[in-house]
Amino acid sequence: MNIFRLTADLMHLASIFILLLKIQKTRSCAGISFKSQLLYALVFITRYIDLFFYWVSLYNTLMKIFFIGSSLYIVYLMQVKFRATNDPVLDTFRIEYLLAPCALLALVANYAFTAQEILWAFSVYLEAGAILPQLFMLQRRGEAETITTHYLFALGAYRGLYLLNWIYRYWAEGYVDWIAWIAGLVQTGLYTDFFYIYYTKVLKGQKFELPA
């Protein structure tokens, strides 16, 4: 554990708490892509299935339980409790175009042709693109509530910090994980536009609005 990874994981935790706060406080999930949240639940389930047979640490286990639990809870909130505020009309990204390539890629590009390694690779590839429905929705709406942009910033920062963590681990331990690295690089890259607007608008006290 190094400072980059710890901060990254804490940012990830923070992003989920911000999202829960947004939903509970506004009693609405407007502006949040249900498809992205569903994909995250799938990412966590397929990746953390090793919870039952691969022990790393108490920290690791508790975080895995939290990420699986909270992602399912968010899916429940959006699909059941606050269903009326969910806006499927704007949530039009075709996730089959994401799921199918990720499944195919996981079958060809994995560390071993075992169920666990294929599921793990799938979860890593899927996580890289899971934010796309959300960014697509943001693009269609043209604006976002400030709290939603804080959620996205925390989520993007978590990914960015993982890159620093990998640079540090490569230097300190000779740690190498090409699948996670390439997917992580792609994932962080998807946030570049968002980061730019967040920096130039939200952090200067303005509303998050995309140029027409």
């Binding site: 990874r5 994981d9 990830h12 090793d50 047979f53 691969y54 790393v56 640490s57 690791n60 975080m63 895995k64 990420f67 560390y111 071993a112 666990q116 390694e117 793990w120 993982y162 963590n165 994980d177 996670a180």
Partner: peptide, 10 residues
């Protein structure tokens, strides 16, 4: 079950 790489990250 053995994994190929050490999966100690989240």
């Amino acid at each position: 079950l053995e994994t190929v790489t050490i999966k100690d990250e989240l």
